[in-house]
């Protein structure tokens, strides 16, 4: 079958879906699109299920050559994408003709792009998901979790792409110009174990996104948070958990996190906040803001309702 040929894989282009569920008790990580909101919108533009398999392109560097004409959708960061050297802004459907090239350069704003395909990308699920986890050698095109590389051929399930759809305004995960990045956090049981000053500082000082950031976790730097409680026994880690190791600098654990761990936690970012954090370049200033579980749930359900 004709498809899109990978001419250049770049640093990290991965096939992702909504994640791998029902196997975390075996030590298998969740995986899935780090910015699941952008993947959801890309799929919505084509009339797909929100978390149908697509490609997550981190920081650019990917070039695809079309063997056949196809309508795709691109959302997320501005990675300097071009279609035969013409700039292609994210947040839309577009048709790539046979013989054309889609190329991603480097990030201008944000970090990750999502490319959706008619009916979803065609790949065989492993343990119920096509999500690529390099560390665990699970998922992806070859089932072994590796990133896209030169010579790979992307094909899709097919079917109708539905009628033309336009992204509503202000739905993305990237902050507007000068907009403060606030990340909603559900307080966890161990929050009481942090010093009063630390709890105050956690929510009232800006945090810098560190260079040490990947799909497992994002380190934030700022005031040193002090945990006064006792040492912990390892326990299950939810998405977005904000763990604080001995150096007092929090790490937000994302999709490819370890399944259990023993560092104290302030709580967990909401999945919506995780998607926003996944688009923050190193050096970005972010603020943590407390949210009640009920409020967080309502915001999440509103997001899901957008996609019908």
């Amino acid at each position: 079958m004709k498809g899109l040929i990978v001419e250049r894989g770049g640093p990290l282009a991965l096939i992702q879906d909504g994640g791998r569920f029902g196997v975390r008790h075996l030590g298998v990580t969740q995986g899935g699109a780090a910015d699941w909101v952008s993947l959801g919108w890309a799929n919505w533009l084509l009339g797909n299920a929100p978390q149908a398999p697509g490609v997550e392109i981190t920081v650019g560097g990917l070039t695809l050559y079309a063997e056949t004409s196809v309508t795709l959708a691109l959302t997320g960061a501005d990675l300097g994408a071009t279609l035969d050297d013409e700039p292609l802004a994210p947040g839309r459907r577009f048709t790539i003709a046979a013989g054309q090239r889609l190329a991603f350069e480097s990030p201008r704003t944000g970090l990750r792009d999502y490319l959706a395909f008619p009916g979803g990308l065609d790949a065989a699920p492993v343990l119920g998901s096509v999500a690529s986890t390099v560390r665990e050698s699970l998922g992806g095109l070859d089932g072994q979790g590796r990133a896209l590389t030169e010579g790979d051929c992307l094909t899709w399930v097919g079917g109708t792409s539905g009628s033309e759809r336009t992204l509503p305004s202000r739905v993305g995960t990237l902050p507007g110009d000068g907009e403060r990045v606030t990340l909603a956090l559900v307080g966890g049981a161990q929050i009481a174990g942090f010093s009063g000053t630390s709890v105050f500082e956690a929510f009232n000082t800006p945090w810098q996104v560190d260079q040490r950031a990947d799909r497992m976790g994002v380190r934030l730097t700022g005031p040193e948070l002090r945990y006064l409680g006792e040492g912990m026994v390892s326990e299950g880690i939810p998405l977005g958990a904000v763990q604080v190791p001995a150096d007092g600098q929090p790490i937000v654990l994302l999709n490819d996190r370890q399944t259990i761990g023993g560092y104290p936690r302030l709580g967990a970012l909401t999945p919506l906040a995780c998607a926003r954090l996944a688009q923050c370049q190193p050096g970005t200033e972010v603020w943590l803001t407390p949210v009640a579980v009920g409020q967080a749930r309502e915001a999440h359900l509103r997001q899901l309702a957008c996609w019908g």
Partner: peptide, 20 residues
């Protein structure tokens, strides 16, 4: 997902079916 560890179990539930 249900993730047991030494002394605890993490229950990850579907918020489309259940509230807290």
């Amino acid at each position: 997902d249900l993730v047991p560890s030494y002394t605890t179990l993490l229950v990850h539930y579907d918020i489309q079916r259940l509230d807290l």
